[in-house]
Simulated scan of single mutants.
Amino acid sequence: MVSIYDIAKAAGMSAATVSRALADNDKISRSSRERIQRIADEMGYRPNLLARNFRQKSSSMIGLITDDVSDELSGMIAKGVEQALRDNGFSMLVRNVHHDLDNEQSAIDYFADMQMDGVILADSTLDSLAEVPSTKLPFVLINRFSSAEEPVSIVCTDDFAGGYDATDYLIKLNHHKIAYINGPEDWYSSIRRLNGYIDALKKNNIPFHSEYVKHGDWFEDSGYRLALELFRSEDPPTAVFAANDMMAVGVIDAARECGLRVPEDVSVMGYDDRTIAKYVRPRLTTIQLPMFEVGQMAGQVLCEMITTGHVPDGKSTRLLVRGNVIERETTAPLQG
């Protein structure tokens, strides 16, 4: 590997002069900087960025922490973050923590040791109300909340509005017996979507029936199992709103097993607008979440914090991004 000492020998200059020239230090004449850069290029020199980061106490890099970037929605967030960082002259390093608090704190410590300029904690499936792990780096949260006293910047999808919009959409199709298959009870997104569902019923003067609310685990099997309970009950719903698309796919399967046609006999509404929503049959009506835009906004907020030196003071800032209804084939007006 070519070092600055090799370049210095070839240029007939000191290593200190070469180092300053490669850092574009204006104390070195332009002609010398250009000559040294030309020699470095000819010799195939590549700078040791890690060493430079430690010297400069800066890396122009952001650490992104997510549960699993291979997940479709997490991947869209990462793309949005990356776009904002690229526009602002930053790069990104990703760590997956796989739903583990210890892994999350370890990732933060790693980014601090690497002299990262900031951290984004994205869409964790951990308890969103938990304390934010300790870090002295500027950071932004995506789709999670903190009970910590210190102010933080938060960018998230508007889960309350999403729950309201999905339910209101079904009500406008003349459905009054609307069941809701939620995510885990203690998740912040589950709580907010459920509140949106309840508020839509209330504002449309439709009684809330607790027996129509079930709690799943985000996976198809729970949607299937809970939908069977609903369809086999004494007073089955005419529409089912599932808190994500995967559980909605399970609902469609359960309806088919019970001899119900979708949407003629029962309407099904999803949430997220994952790729599967376009390819399941019938195609799934759902709430589209602008995850790329959420990631992009979070990246922009963090870049501004770093470049301006401004961090939230006094109280947390919360930026909400609202999704919208994507109408496909699993919903229809109630007949009769």
Rank of each mutant, 00 (worst) to 15 (best):
S3H: 10
I4Y: 04
Y5C: 13
D6H: 03
I7R: 00
I7P: 00
M13Q: 11
V18M: 11
V18A: 04
S19Y: 00
R20M: 12
R20I: 05
R20H: 12
A21W: 09
L22W: 04
N25F: 03
D26V: 06
K27Q: 09
I28Y: 03
R30A: 10
S31Y: 03
S32W: 04
R33T: 06
R33D: 04
R35G: 00
I39V: 03
A40C: 03
A40N: 02
E42C: 01
E42Y: 01
M43P: 06
M43Y: 09
R46D: 01
R46E: 09
P47C: 04
N48H: 01
N48E: 12
L49G: 00
L49M: 15
L50S: 10
L50N: 09
A51H: 05
A51Y: 08
F54H: 12
R55C: 01
Q56C: 01
S58R: 15
S58L: 13
S60D: 05
G63T: 12
G63V: 11
L64K: 02
L64F: 01
L64R: 06
I65W: 09
T66W: 00
D67S: 06
V69D: 13
E72Y: 06
L73Q: 12
L73F: 14
L73N: 09
S74M: 15
G75N: 08
G75V: 02
